[in-house]
């Protein structure tokens, strides 16, 4: 309920943030805090410094070029969801972000916070994977495949700051989510993006190793992009997580149904 003693810091630049981080004993970057703060309140995490990076100018902004839509890591969900450039460019992405948490969460949470946390039931990781995103940090550039490393794990090193994420613009894309009736996180969700060089299907909420690409679905849809192409398929049960809300068998069913709905309803989102 109460955090252990910590110091809240709000740097104005990446350099300042890094310096504050390096000087801390057990520091943490704060970029929304919807996971970090409950963990600290539950005394599951202890950090002597909370470095709030949401106001750093270098982490702001949304920009479009010919091939990519680039979003600064500290951009809040509400700003992404409402940005005309996102809505025009990748409507499914804007729509998806508009379903994260609730209004309060969307006004505090950020894209970078979500992707750095890589919660297995979060929405953003599936969009990043299906949209073949490029992750820019203060040190390097990573592909989505390189970036996601399993449950709550990414390629980010301690102290490494995510600066921006560039989503490859698809021909069209769709997102379908089945919500956990209690938490409202995804019990299973599919982001299906059609690129010039093929279809990418990313599944979140269901995999026992976090977000993943469903390659069988991608090749089936590559032959013919319609939901019936997936009829003979079944999501890999070995790969499914299991809990009180959905066992592996049910999750596998939801994965397939969500994927089919995302295929049928392109350029929008489907809440199941």
């Amino acid at each position: 309920m109460y955090l252990y003693d910590t110091t809240y810091l709000r740097p104005g630049s990446i350099d300042e943030a890094k310096a504050l981080y390096d000087a801390g004993e057990s520091p943490a970057f704060l970029s929304g805090g919807h996971t970090l703060l409950p963990a600290m309140k539950g005394h599951l995490a202890r950090h002597d410094r909370l470095i709030d990076i949401r106001r750093i100018p270098e982490l702001q902004g949304i920009a479009e070029d010919e091939s990519y839509l680039t979003i600064g890591a500290a951009t809040r969900h509400c700003d992404v969801a409402a940005a005309p450039v996102v809505r025009n460019c990748i409507p499914a992405l804007a729509g998806m972000v508009g379903t994260i948490g609730d209004v309060q969460v969307r006004h505090v949470g950020t894209i970078g916070g979500s992707l750095a946390n890589n919660d297995p039931a979060a929405d953003y990781p599936s969009a990043a994977l299906a949209l073949d995103a490029i992750f820019r940090t203060d040190q390097r550039t990573l592909t989505a495949e390189e970036y996601f490393q399993g449950l709550y794990t990414t390629a980010l090193e301690p102290g490494e700051l995510l600066v921006s994420v560039s989503f490859r613009k698809p021909e069209h894309a769709g997102y379908a989510k089945f919500r956990n009736p209690a938490s409202r996180y995804a019990l299973a969700a599919a982001f299906v993006a059609v690129h010039a060089d093929g279809v990418r299907v990313a599944i979140t909420g269901a995999g026992n190793d976090g977000v993943y690409r469903w390659h069988e679905a991608e090749s089936a849809l590559g032959h013919k992009f319609e939901s019936e192409s997936l009829d003979p398929l079944r999501a890999d049960m070995e790969n499914m997580s299991s809990d009180m809300h959905a066992n592996a068998e049910y999750r596998a069913e939801l994965v397939k149904f969500c994927t089919q709905k995302a295929v049928t309803n392109q350029n929008c989102i489907t809440l199941l």
Binding site: P181, A182, S183, Y185, M244, H245
Partner: peptide
């Protein structure tokens, strides 16, 4: 109010698992 019978531990201790 789900309880794990093996351990006797309540398993729906927050709104993450207790649907309303």
């Amino acid at each position: 109010c789900a309880i794990d019978e093996e351990t006797g531990q309540p398993s729906a201790g927050s709104f993450m698992d207790y649907g309303m």
